[in-house]
Amino acid sequence: MLTIKNLKAKIATEEGEKEILKGIDLKVNAGEIHAIMGPNGSGKSTLASVLTGREGYEVTEGEVIFEKKNLLDESPEDRARLGIFLAFQYPVEIPGVSNTNFLKTAINEIRKSKGEEPMSSVDFLKLIKEKAKLVGLDPQMISRYVNVGFSGGEKKRNEIFQLAMLNPKLSILDETDSGLDIDALRTVADGVNKLRTKDNAFIVITHYQRLLDYIVPDFVHVMYDGKIVKSGDKDLALHLEEHGYDWITNDKNAVTV
């Protein structure tokens, strides 16, 4: 589904240009869940931003192929229409735009890009009801402005609700667990597990092993200083939890050659 080859990217900072991604290689197949872990500043969120096309990042080398398409040539909206979804680490509040209007516009633009007719209001409401229940979102929040006055946990839950509504092929969850209490974490994880099929895939970016107790990954990758320095199965996450990231930093010469 997704192939990232030697991806390098930099951003412009006040002190000049800074390379954040220093050669990422990753392959994600349909039906898989990949966890990306790593300390602060290792480039995890930058990877999510580059994959979804946020402005301000310059790709200097490498390529990203998503279902035979060169993703880096596409606009953020076209990437979304191809089936890529980002659950934001810091969801944006948009006063004046209701969740319903926002989602209806999104769904219909995605449908339009595929040459489909707009969704009928009846079907749309049915879908909202069904997906709100699935992720445990209070239906009252849906008529409110996007994320305005939502608690941290509600915002994250709203991200997963949007994910459920848009039904993407590849979902990137950027620290969805941060700011969530244990109950909210469980509901969000339950939602993701219910949405998981053999045809879609997830990249779960997280600091902690905690979320991975509930969303069990097929692969765990550790990022450090702009590279994936170690890959393994779910046991790698447990090992990290026990030994901390120091274990990787001390050991990185051994794995990066």
Binding site: G53, R54, F102
Partner: peptide, 29 residues
């Protein structure tokens, strides 16, 4: 606000429509 624009675009909403939505919202109060 470019963060708001990106948020809408990341959900498949094109720049034109995203702009209309945000300006409409801005005027709504």
């Amino acid at each position: 606000n470019e963060d708001e624009m990106f948020y809408l675009q990341s959900r498949g909403i094109g720049r034109e429509n995203a702009r209309t939505l945000l300006l409409y919202a801005y005027a709504s109060d």
